[in-house]
Amino acid sequence: MRIAAGVVKQLLKRDPKTVARCLTLIENGDPRAKSILKELYPRTGRAHIVGVTGAPGTGKSTLISRMIAELRRRQKRVGVLTVDPTGPFSGGALLGDRIRMREHFLDQGVFIRSLATRGCKGGVASSIRDAACLLDAVGNEIVVIETIGVGQDQVEVKNLAHTIVVLVIPGMGDEIQGMKAGLLEIADILVVNKADLPGAEETWEQLRGLFGETAVPILKTSALENVGVGELVDTLEEHYGKLQTGSDRRDGGLEFSRSQVLSLLRDRLLDRLVQRIGAGSIEAWVEKVAERRLDAHTAAEKILKSAGF
């Protein structure tokens, strides 16, 4: 499908309506999105993509708003994607992150978009990646992605961003113990937010006890009182700087591209499989597994076999 030069031209002028419209095409899985991304691809790879993750209510959106202000002072244009879960039964979503970023609504150098997961995990990762690509291509020097950081989502965000910031708050003590493995795997920077609250020092010490030996920086911020934000942005830039130099760059780039290609391959292969044998026949195997008549491994094997693999 050919996309008229007009759309690309408007995109590169950062026309907010056109950018917003293309993000919708991406969200809806519209084939036109692919053509647009293909056209823009040579212009991508310039933005620093930052993931901000942490349990609900840890202050992600409020801190991002403070980060935006600091980044704007440093003359950076900022794109923000906030991701919230779609309700499993209703299919609806209440997207309430934008409200915390009000001070940037009228700033032409900031583009904020709320996304719902729409109930399909694999799919949403590739939509977020494409959305970030678009915001990158239209000239944002930094793209920040907010996701809830509990459960399996964490692993996903790892491959979407160059730098992952994980937020914890005072009083999370035991939870932090439990999160250790997950955190170690994904965090490039750890932040104790709400450092204005009692117990921040203890939480920070606890993290140091767990991560002191690693190179992961551990910071304290108060998004409420706007403390520690400059240092956080410095640390982000440092981390990205390291990725840009030496072998890290090549490895990082390879890893990023590999995960992108593999995740797309997974999605496409699954699509083809469904096309070939029908969603209904997969569902029939699923039911057998649910009724404990068959284990999931065998079911997967049988499904592949029936599709001729």
Partner: peptide, 16 residues
């Protein structure tokens, strides 16, 4: 039908 992207895709408008 919310907003038309300026300039349309060939063979259909980019507004979806």
């Amino acid at each position: 039908r919310r907003q038309k992207a300026k300039g349309s895709a060939r063979g259909g408008s980019a507004s979806g």
